[in-house]
Design a protein around this nucleic acid. Structure first.
Length: 948
RNA sequence: GCAGGGGUGCCCGAGCGGCCAAAGGGGGAGGACUUAAGAUCCUCUGGCAUAGGCCUUCGAGGGUUCGAAUCCCUUCCCCUGCACCA
């Protein structure tokens, strides 16, 4: 296996171990993997891009550092280990059949640390098989004791700057597991949001009916309270008040409000018909029955605002029509006076918007499922476009969205309201089967991303950075502005503990924001005693702050510090696009807070996602191809090539087997090309010693012009990570040109023509180097086989020879191709009885005219004529006019590159033209033989043709 | 809803004022080669023509321009993110 062979040689010669030297440095990193599963082809793309870039820049003469490490902190593996332990069938199946963990290893995954250990070593192995040019001396895991010391230093530094603060935050929570749960821990309810509800308190005797609402501003339109007589209510004590809520609501609410103690059960039937007090308006409201009120959303108690809430409106209507209920609860004399009170106006709706939407959607009663849509629609439109009616004091005329916030604040300050949280949709069920709740985690620690000064500084980091693709810069700007305080402490998972509050673990997105600095010094720290790595040590190494507390000897500290200062700042950071709003933004935040400007990151590249035969790749759904399988089936070079060629890094790529096979064939062709050249040469190739030949034929010059153009374009593309474009140039288009050249010169291939041999050898030599970043194994093999010096990985990237790039040469070949095409076309029309093909070349004055037209720049016949006559290019003005007119049309279709020697070009290609068109080709520079008067049609780049 | 991105030929995708009927790949058709298959190479793959031409097309409608897939306006549709999760 040639791939293994070269991987071994690279490792033996340590050619990717980078230490400081005199060369210009380049430090590139890609988000390190969280190894909780096997590596698939999506990961393959992620890590191949930086490798290709690193290899390219190395060939460009840079001292490149490309390191790798393992992000093993966080909670997911804890859940996975748990599920393995419980023998959860879905999880076992996933790890056995998708991640393909051998049966002997599977039980060991009950230990979360073993999971990350197992998969990080698998990642390591597969990354070696992919031929990545990583400096493995700097590998680490984020639970290494030395790394933890680094994180302790980082978080302490931030805390000292006042950027780590205490606070509280609502999270999805499983009461049975006694843990916060992420989306991946859910059986049902993935992606469900958490709504903030306002709890409004209505007095009834010495108790308080606590109603939950999304729309506190409608309190002025409250007409009554709804209770559902069929659900269980209880009385609880809350901060000295006695609240009435449902039993279900207590289940949720007790996780949000402290010391919520159940006092006794309440029979809703005892309350219905009584009056409650709206503490904001002072009005009394009757308590009425409604079946739409559910016990598990909010508090299970609802205040009714029938003007804007469709459910309230229809429930009121239902009740008024229900004589049975009215008499059951003695509501005669009460119910008649309950009528909607207008609160909001919104374009397209009348005084009572709820009535309009009920009618519009044809809702029959309060149990109609369409009620949900009605509520949503009205909520949205009133939120965005609605205003409070003018008659309402203090809030009249204000936008609904603004009045809502202001009123909420007012109500809370008057202790008429408080806040609670609930899921936007239900159910939300943990993998353990329990219903989740919203829990307020208090005494949490937060990164204060809301800090205005910090935001300003972070925006500066962004401003100085190159972002690829550029449009993502807007996204970053938006996210930096929008990010609020971020809970950075957790109570489960692997990771580093907060040094000042050991009950908390540092959240994994927080412990991976400046770790790129750690790479630069990791090779030293791995053998050091963690106890010596105190804050003073990192202060000195990373920030050059002196202190007596440094325990490491000064010489070592100095060496480590030099290494850090050599590699930092980070030149390129690569990461997936779903990390723009958190990880990548955090990275900028933390760098801005900790490091001086000259250590801020210089560039970010954002990746797209991977598709498999058109469908989204997903390990959990089993829709993946493991990278190690792909390598086995196609070889690492083919996988690399496909991943780099099928899409630019920031676009979504699509792994399609047919196209992968196409890529393989293409690589095979490249690999066999050397042999082909050798056969043409008739003796072994030595690309280190190519015999130079003076070229005179246009087609030979054309090949080298094309080669240099492709080298140029590929290099420019790679500089900005356009791997697809680079390969388009250096593989697909170059190959097409080589094909064309071989076809064009087919009559010379067995003649040992020195020019052809020179051209092809040159192409081969450049081509191997051109593709080396993409398919390093094949290129090393060819490089050594055909006499290259050393490793191609260490060779230089081919220089562009600008002198060989010629638009005229390109145009010349185009001329030949067009003549053949035209002749064939005309021949087609005339039939086969053609023996002579006359070609008439354009006379000089037409070239002059074209030159003038080109200067004018647009098909303005008048101006062209004017200048032509002034310059006196030809004496027949009428003829000038005719040609100018034609030229006007032609020039919009053809690019003028200056005069070319058509006579010589066509003569050069005569053998080829004859072969292609089959007939005697005669070139005329005048009209001495012109029976059909065609010669006058000749135009620059487009000779006239006559056949007989 | 907010923010960002996008709609191109059978499919994927490049192009972002005139070399554009639109690169490249995939698929399809034909030919060469081969005992055959595969691979490889050549040609074609919007329509109509048949002296190298013309017409229609780049989500839809309007505009700017000598000229628009490309610029401007309007409109419809699609994708991604909206957090405590790596």
């Amino acid at each position: 296996m040639i791939e293994k062979k070269w991987q071994k040689k690279w490792a033996e010669e340590k050619i990717f171990e980078s230490d400081p030297n005199d060369k210009e440095k380049l430090f590139i990193t890609v988000a390190f993997p969280y190894p909780s599963g096997a590596m698939h082809i999506g990961h393959g793309r992620t890590y191949t891009v930086p490798d290709v870039y690193a290899r390219f820049k190395r060939m460009k003469g840079y001292n490149v550092l490309f390191p790798m490490a393992w992000h093993v902190t966080g909670a997911p593996v804890i859940g996975i280990a748990d599920r393995i332990k419980r023998k959860d069938p879905w999880t076992l199946d996933l790890y056995e059949n998708v991640h393909r963990v051998p049966a002997s290893e599977l039980p060991k995954l009950e230990d979360p640390e073993y999971i990350v250990k197992y998969f990080s070593s698998e990642y390591n192995e597969v990354m070696h098989e992919m031929g990545y040019s990583i400096d493995w001396r700097r590998e680490f895991r984020t639970i290494d004791p030395t790394y933890k010391k680094f994180i302790e230093w980082q978080i302490t530094t931030l805390k000292e700057k006042g950027l780590v603060i205490r606070g509280e935050h609502p999270v999805k929570y499983c009461p049975r597991c006694d843990n916060p749960v992420g989306d991946h821990d859910l059986l049902e309810g993935e992606g469900v949001g958490v709504n903030e509800l306002t709890l409004l308190k209505f007095k009834i005797d010495d108790k308080i009916l606590v109603t939950a609402t999304l729309r506190p501003e409608t309190i002025v339109g409250a007409t009554n309270i709804w209770l559902n007589p069929d659900i269980e209510y209880i009385e609880v004590s809350a901060n000295g008040e006695n609240w009435i809520i449902t039993k279900e609501a207590h289940h949720n609410l007790s996780n949000q409000i402290k010391d919520l103690e159940i006092l006794n059960e309440i029979n809703p039937n005892d309350l219905i018909g009584k009056l409650a007090i709206n503490q904001f308006t002072g009005e009394t409201l009757p308590i009425l029955p409604a079946s739409f009120v559910s016990d598990d959303y909010g508090s299970g108690v609802v205040f009714s605002e029938p003007a804007d809430a469709p459910a309230d409106y229809i429930a009121l209507k239902d009740l008024k029509n229900n004589a049975e209920l009215i008499s059951k609860y003695n509501l005669e004399g009460i119910i008649e006076d309950v009528n909607p009170i207008p609160v909001c106006t919104v374009k397209g709706y009348g005084e009572i918007p709820a009535a309009d939407i009920i009618e519009k959607l044809g809702i029959k009663d309060q149990n109609d499922p369409k009620l949900h849509d009605a509520t949503n629609e009205l909520y949205k439109i009133e939120h965005s476009k609605g205003r409070i009616i003018d008659s309402i004091e203090g809030y009249g005329g204000k936008k609904v969205s603004i009045a809502r916030e202001e009123l909420k604040e007012e109500l809370i300050s008057k202790n008429i309201a408080t806040i609670m949280y609930d899921f936007a949709e239900k159910p939300v069920i943990c993998r353990c089967g329990e219903n989740c709740v919203v829990k307020i985690m208090d005494n949490q620690w937060f990164m204060k991303y809301s800090d205005p000064e910090w935001k300003v500084k972070t925006h500066e980091v962004l401003e100085r950075e190159t972002i690829i693709p550029p449009e993502v810069k807007n996204n970053f700007n938006y996210y930096i502005g929008w990010l609020d305080d971020w809970a950075c402490s957790r109570n489960v998972g692997l990771g580093t503990r907060l040094p000042w509050d050991k009950q908390w673990l540092i959240e994994p997105l927080t412990d991976s924001t400046i770790y790129m600095s750690y790479y630069t010094i990791a090779k030293f720290l791995r053998n050091m005693n963690p106890d010596d790595l105190n804050n003073a040590f990192f202060d000195k190494v990373l920030l050059n702050k002196d202190s007596d507390d440094v325990k490491v000897d000064a010489e070592t500290v100095d060496e480590i510090q030099k290494e850090f200062n050599y590699w930092y700042p980070l030149d390129w950071r690569l990461s997936a696009k779903d990390l723009v709003g958190n990880h990548l933004s955090f990275l900028m935040f933390h760098h801005s807070a900790i490091y001086p400007e000259n250590k801020w990151p210089k560039g970010t590249v954002v990746f797209g996602m991977g598709l498999l035969e058109g469908n989204k790749m997903s390990s959990s759904k089993g829709n993946v191809i493991l990278l190690k399988d792909a390598i086995e089936d196609y070889s690492a070079d083919v996988v690399r090539l496909f991943l780099m060629a099928s899409a630019e890094p920031w676009q979504d790529f699509d792994w399609r087997q047919k196209e992968v096979l196409g890529t393989k064939r293409r690589l095979d062709w490249f690999k066999e090309f050397g042999q082909k050249v050798e056969e043409i040469k008739g003796s072994p190739l030595d690309i280190n010693n190519i015999e130079k030949v003076e070229l005179t034929r246009t087609i030979d010059l054309w090949m080298l012009s094309q080669l240099n153009q492709h080298i140029k374009a590929a290099g420019e593309a790679l500089e900005v990570f356009q791997t697809r474009k680079a390969l388009q140039e250096s593989l697909f288009l170059l190959r097409k040109d080589i094909d064309h050249y071989l076809y064009r010169q087919s009559h010379l291939l067995d003649k040992k023509d020195p020019a052809v041999i020179y051209v092809l050898s040159t192409v081969l030599e450049s081509w191997i180097r051109l593709l080396a970043p993409f398919t390093p194994h094949s290129c090393e093999e060819l490089w050594s086989k055909y006499g290259g010096n050393g490793f191609v990985s260490q060779a230089s990237w081919p220089e562009v020879n600008e002198d060989l790039i010629s638009l005229k040469i390109e145009k010349s070949e185009e001329l030949v191709q067009n003549i053949i095409k035209d002749i064939k076309q005309i021949k087609n029309m005339l039939g086969d009885d053609i023996s002579k093909i006359h070609i008439y070349l354009s006379s000089d004055w037409k070239w002059n005219l074209y030159e003038i037209a080109n200067e004018v720049g647009k098909p303005d016949i008048g101006q062209i004529m004017g200048r032509a006559i002034k310059a006196n290019i030809y004496d027949n003005k009428k003829e000038i006019a005719n040609v100018a007119k034609k030229l006007g049309r032609e020039m919009t279709k053809t690019k003028y590159v200056g005069k070319i020697n058509e006579n010589q070009i066509i003569n050069d290609a005569l053998a080829y033209i004859n072969q292609e068109v089959d007939g005697e080709v005669i070139i005329h520079t005048d009209d001495s033989y012109d029976p059909e008067n065609k010669a006058k049609n000749a135009m620059p780049y487009k000779p006239a043709i006559y056949m007989e």
